[in-house]
Amino acid sequence: MKIIEDAILRGEKTLSEFDSKKVLEAYSIPVTREFIAKSTAEAKVFAREIGYPVVLKGSSSTLTHKTELNMVELNIKDEKALEEACQSIEERGKGRIDGILVQQMIRGEREFVAGLIRDPQLGPCVMFGLGGIFTEVLKDVTFRVAPLEMEDALEMITEIKAKKILDRFRGKPAVNRDLLANILRSLGRIGLDIPEIAEIDINPLIVHDEIPVAVDALVVLRDRNGDDSYSRDGR
């Protein structure tokens, strides 16, 4: 994949959020609509195209914790708010960002995480779990080894302790499990197809009505110089 080859040539260890989602999109994983704006004027054009409200984020392949760095502005409702947000992100991100990501705002109360890791013994493994701010504390996650059959993915989804939020929840329809399962299967396929990818994080994967959408994503590339702990990937 060209995005990955280019990033490797540039010596980067991770892909930007924008490029990470391009990889996911190529495997039919639903992602937010988004563009990278090089100026406030451009950001306005994109925001109009996507439709308010939007999210703005500082874009870079080196910033992996944008929220902690205060590089995310949520729920921007109009042009005035957009101008202010652009200005403040540009100030805070000076020298560290190469553009502003203008992104569709996904509303949903159910947040999950999904991802790909490479286990030294089992090779590429897909992760699914409960998302949100308590993800790290609750560690309500489950794994499967790639490739995933449809039934593996469906079974895996029901293994989390919080599985009840997959059903009808606070007036929202049940999560579309087939779509969710296909996202997990796609992650497994990426792991098998693209050895240059070490890990993927989709966090959060927000359910809008019944459709899970990758709202933030990070693709971690293999470290080519350091010791390659992923060499025994079981294939």
Binding site: P120, C125, T142, R144, V145, D152, E155
Partner: peptide, 15 residues
């Protein structure tokens, strides 16, 4: 021997 990462191994076993 490597004891393996418990939740990952659980997934493998179930599968």
């Amino acid at each position: 021997a490597l004891a393996g990462n418990a939740p990952v191994m659980d997934g493998f076993f179930r599968q």
